[in-house]
């Protein structure tokens, strides 16, 4: 829908030039629009910042995330402990830094999983239509009908608490979102002439899907995925907060929040730092996602 159909394509190479030549310029244009958007720039910069922090965590963190000092509990921020210490005397600053690793990983892996399976299901359903479409999308509807956190809690309860199961649960509950987006795009794209042409020259279905439809359905999925990372991080933090996510001493931000909020009145810093970190990371993905959305869909970006 987003890219205009090139008219002068030879039937034998129907998808390739379109995906390469036209696609490149589409993405380049989008990138330029993205960069003009100040909010998007901030979001992107924050994501890069968090990514760097996550990668370099052991080098940046002044202390280990599980280095306890039971006699120095809940100490306020100081030169030695920039964000203070938590209920076991661990350095909150170090834990928040290590936590970036976990939240980044959870967000990205969970979304990658959801995006992968959701896109496959959605495109297959949309392209095939008929009973497969009905069957797959009804399952997606049922999954969407559950509040996502409740569903995630159910999955974790079934498989036991832990970081891997958190990723799995967050991934599963997000599949329907991507399936829907992918299906909607597919339904529109499959009627375009270049797709019809590809089919007419005898391209196999998987080739049509991979070369003609997927590249054109990608942009709404990318937008959704970027925003989805924010949602996945929040979901994972919620599970961590409920004690179903990462188990101690893992410095997962949600779990850190739940361990320290009871000391909020006497030692607010222990809860403030992970809370602010979650907020900031979610914000960064939301800003970037909105920017991408505007950049990839010029019709919307021109709204007043």
């Amino acid at each position: 829908m987003l890219s205009s159909t090139p008219e002068s394509v030879t039937p034998s190479a129907v998808a390739r030039p379109r995906a390469r030549a036209a696609g490149r310029s589409t993405w380049r244009l989008a990138a330029r629009r993205f960069w003009r958007n100040a909010n998007a720039r901030v979001g992107f910069a924050l994501i890069v910042f968090f990514a760097l922090v996550a990668v370099a965590a052991p080098r940046i963190a002044p202390e280990g995330y599980d280095q306890e000092n039971l006699l120095g509990r809940l100490k306020p921020p100081s030169a030695a402990h920039w964000f203070g210490t938590d209920e076991l005397g661990r350095d909150v600053f170090s834990r928040v830094i290590y936590g970036a690793r976990i939240s980044m990983t959870v967000g990205l892996v969970a979304v990658a999983g959801a995006l992968g399976s959701g896109a496959v299901l959605g495109i297959a359903a949309g392209y095939t239509g008929g009973r497969l479409d009905g069957f797959v999308m009804r399952i997606m509807d049922v999954m969407l009908a559950f509040p996502s956190v409740i569903l995630a809690i159910g999955i974790v309860a079934l498989r036991g608490p832990g970081l891997n199961n958190t990723i799995l649960a967050v991934s599963i509950v997000n599949i329907p979102v991507y399936a829907r987006v992918a299906r909607a795009s597919t339904l529109a794209i499959k009627e375009h002439e270049y797709v019809v042409a590809a089919r007419a020259v005898g391209a196999r279905p998987w080739r049509v899907l991979l070369r003609a439809i997927l590249p054109n359905a990608a942009s709404p999925l990318v937008v959704q995925a970027t925003l989805g990372v924010a949602g996945a991080i929040l979901d994972a933090a919620a599970l961590g907060f409920l004690g179903l996510g990462a188990q101690p001493p893992t410095p997962e931000w949600g779990a850190m929040l739940s361990d320290s909020y009871k000391y909020l009145l006497t030692a607010f810093w222990a809860a403030l730092a992970p809370g602010a970190a979650i907020a900031l990371m979610v914000l960064s993905f939301n800003l970037a996602g909105d920017g991408l959305h505007d950049a990839l869909d010029p019709r919307l970006s021109s709204r007043a």
Partner: peptide, 19 residues
């Protein structure tokens, strides 16, 4: 996906309790 603003819930609760 619409998510409740989880990150703000606890500080808010604390403020409410304090009040």
């Amino acid at each position: 996906m619409i998510k409740p603003p989880r990150r703000t819930r606890h500080p808010v609760t604390a403020v409410v309790i304090a009040v």
